[in-house]
Amino acid sequence: MKTRAAVAVAPETDLEIQELNLDEPRPDELRVKMIASGVCHTDAIIRDQWYPVPQPVVLGHEGAGIVQEVGSAVSGFEVGDKVVIGPSFCSACKQCLSGHPMYCEIFYERNFGVQRGDGSTAFSTEDGESVGSHFFGQSSFAEYTNVPAHGAVKVPEDAPLELLGPLGCGIMTGSGAVLNVLKPKPGSSIIIFGTGAVGMAGMLAAKAAGASTIIMVDIVPERLEFARELGATHTVNSKETDPVEAVKEITGGGAEYALDTTGVPQVFSQMTKSLGVRGHGALVGAAKLGTEAPFDIGTLLVSGITITLVIEGDAVPKEFIPRLIALHQDGRFPFDRLTKTYPFAEINRAFADSAAGTTLKPIITF
Rank of each mutant, 00 (worst) to 15 (best):
G176P: 04
V58Q: 13
T235N: 14
T121D: 10
L289C: 02
P184I: 03
A232M: 09
N348T: 00
R223S: 09
A315N: 07
D336F: 02
F112G: 11
P186T: 03
L15P: 01
E346R: 14
T121Q: 12
H41C: 13
T121C: 14
Q138R: 03
V83R: 12
A345D: 14
I106E: 14
G196P: 11
E126K: 14
T308F: 09
R228D: 00
P322D: 06
I214H: 04
T359Q: 13
K82R: 15
F135H: 13
A5P: 11
V39N: 09
D23E: 11
P160V: 00
E12M: 13
G132L: 12
T308I: 04
C93W: 00
V74P: 06
P265K: 06
S303M: 14
F193E: 07
K340V: 00
G202N: 10
G71K: 10
V181I: 14
W50N: 10
I364S: 05
P322Y: 08
Q68A: 13
A177K: 09
L230K: 09
P27N: 02
D14Y: 07
F112C: 11
E229F: 06
V236Y: 06
G263D: 02
S175F: 01
K207D: 00
Q270F: 06
A206G: 04
I45E: 10
T251G: 09
A246E: 05
P87R: 12
L324W: 08
V247T: 12
G331T: 02
G279V: 02
A149T: 00
V83M: 09
V316D: 00
A352L: 06
T233Y: 10
G202D: 03
T272V: 14
L309G: 15
L301E: 04
E16W: 01
K185N: 06
T272W: 08
D296N: 10
T261G: 13
G331E: 03
G304L: 04
T308P: 10
I297L: 14
K318Q: 01
K340S: 10
V284Y: 12
S98W: 02
G263I: 00
R349P: 05
G263Q: 00
E245M: 08
G254S: 01
S124V: 08
C169H: 01
V153P: 09
S140G: 13
V316Y: 04
I215C: 14
I311R: 15
P148W: 01
A36Q: 02
S274Y: 04
P334G: 01
L161K: 03
I347Q: 14
V147I: 14
F141N: 12
A159S: 09
I35W: 00
S120W: 02
V267E: 06
E62T: 00
